[in-house]
């Protein structure tokens, strides 16, 4: 299972209205419930918010990686949101967040899911990737940049 396979083009969203942390998570929950019929938006939302309550998933540099388990999720799925306005996310460095990578995994957690989470963190850890994502002007460009970064990281992982 690769990161690439769980992030189809239609789940990379460009110019998502910000507002607040809660609004962003709400937006994603509604979107993913429409995109994946087995999911219930209210449940996705409450799980994501529940995870945020333990400590923000804002990992610094304007990036957040909200993640949660979901009983109606059969295999892991990911979504990416580029916000039009940065929002306050209680991030570790206090900076407002404009790049949001969401990860939903099935109830049966296993090491593969943690590996996915680690991959997301590693991809978003690269300063030039963040810069390119912020500079992209269309949805297409955003997705291509993201995919590039994911592949680059995956090949580095294999070779390293």
């Amino acid at each position: 299972m690769t990161l690439e396979s769980i992030l189809p083009p239609e789940r990379a969203l460009f110019g998502v209205p910000g507002g607040s942390k809660k609004r962003v998570l709400e937006f994603f929950s509604t979107f993913i419930a429409q995109n994946t019929p087995s999911l219930d938006s209210q449940e996705v939302f409450s799980r994501l918010v529940g995870r945020e309550r333990l400590g923000s998933t804002g990992i610094g540099h304007g990036v957040a990686i909200p993640h949660a388990r979901n009983p109606h999720c059969k295999s892991p799925l990911a979504g990416f949101l580029k916000l039009s306005e940065p929002v306050d996310f209680d991030a570790i460095d206090g900076e407002p967040v404009d790049l949001v990578f969401v990860l939903l995994v099935p109830e049966q957690a296993d090491d593969a899911h943690l590996a996915l989470l680690g991959q997301v963190a590693a991809v978003m850890n690269d300063p030039s990737t963040r810069q390119q994502l912020r500079k992209s002007e269309t949805q297409r460009q955003l997705y291509d940049t993201l995919l590039d970064a994911i592949r680059r990281h995956a090949s580095e992982d294999r070779s390293g």
Binding site: L54, G55, T57, I92, E107, Q108, A109, A121
Partner: peptide, 24 residues
């Protein structure tokens, strides 16, 4: 971040909630 890890949790978070979030 390399030392302490990517994510940070609050010390006063309940273990039952942490377990729920990560399936522990």
């Amino acid at each position: 971040r390399a030392f302490f890890g990517t994510f940070t949790l609050q010390g006063d978070a309940l273990m039952s909630d942490v377990a729920e979030a990560y399936g522990l």
